[in-house]
């Protein structure tokens, strides 16, 4: 004995003539005595006759050139995907000592502080502000060697600082001393402003701008910050994918 729900679930197949003979017979038996289900069957029959099946092929509205390049575009996307994957593998390997598997906050903090100290050391021993030269016809900025070096150093410093922040693991409810990070962030912000005068390509300018905004946030944190404050920075980092962008830019510059 089929219930109303069973009947309704099978009405499409019935109207399309796709039911097995015994199911069809049982359904028709029910329809003979059930006005509601009979009306439903008629309604679906009418609708299906109007609805048609797969008449339109939107793909034909695209020009041939679109289809000729379709597979190539998929391959390009795959190549980008492979680079992203390789980068994430690289990052996992590099960050493994600070990684989440079995890590302790103290280890993470040591890692973060080491990275910051190292980054500050880098700026103290380098002179990234020695200016750059414009090559080419001047219509499109082309980075000179010194500009490129300055950008590379800025990116390295930012990366190390931000990796340290990303890997911090302060305990809930406890504050953490961020004075070193704030100093490093201020130094990087100053460096970013000097880089604004350099003849940089558009992508580098954009990345430096994005970094500057997050570094300003970091520089303006309280000296002793709590978990939510650090999480705001880390969320910004993740949302903007900044560590990945830095690594990509470093790869480009290193070629």
């Amino acid at each position: 004995m089929m219930s109303h729900a069973d009947i309704r679930a099978n009405l499409y197949d019935y109207v399309r003539g796709e039911l097995a003979p015994d199911e069809r017979e049982a359904l028709e038996h029910h329809l003979d005595s059930c006005e509601d289900c009979r009306r439903d069957a008629e309604t679906i029959g009418r609708l299906l006759s109007d609805l048609g099946r797969g008449g339109r092929s939107p793909n034909s509205e695209r020009p041939d050139a679109y289809w000729q390049s379709f597979a190539i575009r998929v391959e390009q996307e795959l190549a980008r995907d492979r680079r992203r994957w390789a980068l994430s593998e690289w990052a996992s390997a590099r960050l493994a000592p600070w990684g989440p598997a079995g890590w302790r906050p103290s280890v993470a903090l040591v890692g973060a502080v080491s990275a910051i100290v190292l980054s500050i050391g880098l700026w103290l021993t380098s002179d990234p502000f020695s200016g750059g030269t414009i090559q080419g016809d001047g219509a499109v900025p082309v980075m000179g060697v010194t500009s490129q070096q300055a950008v590379e150093e800025y990116l390295t410093g930012s990366r190390m600082l931000l990796i340290g922040i990303a890997n911090m693991s302060p305990e809930e409810g406890k504050s953490i001393d961020l004075s070193l990070e704030r100093t490093a962030a201020r130094s990087l912000v100053r460096q970013a402003r000097l880089l604004a005068d350099e003849p940089l390509d558009e992508r580098s300018q954009e990345l430096i701008g994005e970094l500057e905004r997050i570094l300003i946030e970091l520089a303006n944190l309280e000296e002793s910050a709590d978990v939510p404050a650090i999480d705001i920075i880390r969320t910004g980092l993740r949302q903007q994918n900044l560590l990945f962008k830095i690594r990509m830019a470093e790869d480009q510059l290193g070629r």
């Binding site: 309704r8 679930a9 099978n10 499409y12 439903d40 309604t43 679906i44 609708l47 609805l51």
Partner: peptide, 11 residues
């Protein structure tokens, strides 16, 4: 089947 029935009825 249930989604199909409900979808068609709704349409």
């Amino acid at each position: 089947k249930t989604h199909l029935y409900r979808g068609l009825r709704r349409m």
